[in-house]
């Protein structure tokens, strides 16, 4: 039960975003992929759930090659994967409760009552109880993000993909979301991939790190290893010293 990304290539027009990126998220661990803006982190994540198809290379989830699945198999796979979008991507026309219950209504034989209970439960997990009837436009950025997490976990997925979960949030909310990610991993045994450029948050949640640089994997290793690495690009990135990165070019 793992996610393997193997030699992934993807370009948009002239722009080559991924040029042979490989990394693996092992079962039960939280893998943090670091990388600057526009380095292709989100693109990588979208390949995992088949929102994008690779130019070459594979993404293997649960032993299945994502790009080779039929649409039905893909839908089945997506039920086991929760996706937390960068800006939450809540449906504007639906209330918070409807948003969170969306995945449940689509593919489970749960009754209306069970769905309502599950929604309440998920909203409690993200500290949003009582917000069921609000609409996304009435929520703050942090609340939206938490509602997005509630939606992603409502179907009890085995995998959770977080697209910059803490970007643009205040420190308290950030800490809270980090705790949530940890809880998912520890209590539910969820395999997670977090992409972020928020180093503090990354160190709080990561079991392992990968660094995506110029379309390839620049570094893979544990938190201890990344702290002691000699690679100037990685050091420059985590210590916020662009001059180191420039020197490495």
């Amino acid at each position: 039960m793992a996610i393997q990304i193997r030699d992934l290539y993807k370009s948009f027009g002239e722009k080559e975003v991924l040029r042979g990126f490989s990394v693996e998220a092992r079962e039960g661990e939280t893998l943090v992929i670091l990388g600057g803006s526009g380095s292709g982190k989100s693109v990588t994540l979208k390949h995992v759930v088949g929102l994008l198809t690779p130019d070459s290379g594979d993404v293997v989830v649960d032993g299945q090659v994502v790009s080779e699945l039929t649409s039905n198999e893909l839908f089945k796979l997506r039920r086991r994967v929760g996706y937390v979008f960068q800006f939450a991507a809540l449906f504007d026309s639906l209330s918070v409760a409807e948003n969170v219950g969306m995945g449940l209504r689509r593919h489970s034989d749960m009754s209306q009552d069970e769905i309502r209970d599950r929604v309440t439960e998920c909203l409690e997990v993200v500290d949003l109880e009582g917000f069921e009837e609000r609409f996304p436009a009435e929520l703050s950025g942090g609340q939206k993000k938490r509602a997005g997490i509630a939606r992603a976990i409502a179907t009890r997925p085995q995998y959770l993909l977080y697209d910059e979960p803490t970007t643009g949030l205040d420190p308290v909310t950030r800490a809270m979301i980090d705790q949530l990610i940890l809880r998912m991993s520890e209590e539910l045994g969820v395999t997670g991939i977090v992409i972020t450029h928020d180093i503090d948050s990354a160190f709080r949640v990561a079991d392992r790190f990968a660094m995506l640089h110029e379309g390839r994997c620049r570094f893979v290793g544990s938190p201890e290893e990344i702290r002691s690495t000699e690679d100037p690009v990685v050091r420059g990135f985590i210590e916020g010293r662009p001059e180191l990165m420039e020197k490495a070019q």
Partner: peptide, 15 residues
Amino acid sequence: MRVTEQIDALETLAY
């Protein structure tokens, strides 16, 4: 919905 990734979100929820 497209630019705010809501359409992607629909897909990830298997719609």
